[in-house]
Amino acid sequence: MIVDSCLDPSTRAPIALQYLNQKGVNVATDVKLFLISHWHDDHISGASEVLRACKSAKFVCSAALRCNEFVTLVSRYQSRSMMISSGVDEFAKIIGELESRSKSKKVIIGPDTWALADKRIFFLPNHGIEVFTLSPSDAALTHSFSSFAKLIPTLKSTKNRVIDLYPNHAAVCVWINLGKDLKILLGADLEVHREDSFGWKAIFTSNTRPAGKALVIKVPHHGSSNSYLKEIWTELIDPDPIAVITPFTKGEKPLPTDLDLKNIRQHSKRTYCTGSRTGGKHIKRDSSVEKTLKEFAKSHRVVTGKMGRVTVTFPDSANITGVQVSIQDPAHRL
């Protein structure tokens, strides 16, 4: 199973494919599920390549995308040609892949599953493996249609790049049961909303979500305070969890901040970060260029550095005490 996609900055290849190929996995036959949590660049880059390679994988995306507004958005922006691509461009390529699948099988094949709150999307009864999506909620679904509509370009407006939509209430949160006591929560970029019917509060208050507490959590939205809700940690997460944070180095305030980390670490003594929180290494350039750039810019930094890896291994799904964690630089334990 692959959730989301990003590119290796040095090879420009999808990291998930690189890792699985390295492990000797035949991605064409052995990957059964490919899920995109939402369409932002940092979650979708290279997704069309993953889908092409994982020929037998079922493709899952948010049900919020199955609306006329999103279709209009993709169809209008996909012809834009710029060096900087957007998540919409990548989604257009995914649609191209689905179209190729349809042509080869001579039947229309769209996303195999539209993710919604509390929906079981995968089940292997012999192994006791189940995958659920915990979001988007119905309210988030309705809200997202109008949000997409706001991004649709209007007549005579300039053909700029489509801007990302924040906050993203339509992101898909994933719950994986690997055994009786071994559960994983992948928090995507879901945030907390003041209304109970949106975001994490909708998951927390739901009485139809899968039962149990997760041992491993991919911390939502890069550990930001917007996604922190004490009840997530007390009601959905094991008292001694393994927490993995994926840092976000773009923007005025890279995530997680020190305060964010303080929030998370009070619930998890085993917290890991997959990369540097401040971005990549400085690029060496011609001294004249460097000098002029320093004069021109108030601040300047590399945002996508080398990507690390946090690997959580379960030797025995029936015995959670044997769980092992290994890290690859620049991933580190906090």
């Binding site: 900055p9 040095s10 773009k250 923007g251 690029i283 945002v303 996508t304």
Partner: peptide, 9 residues
């Protein structure tokens, strides 16, 4: 081949 950078001006 260089990675993406962020700038404030």
């Amino acid at each position: 081949e260089n990675p993406i950078e962020e700038i404030t001006f």
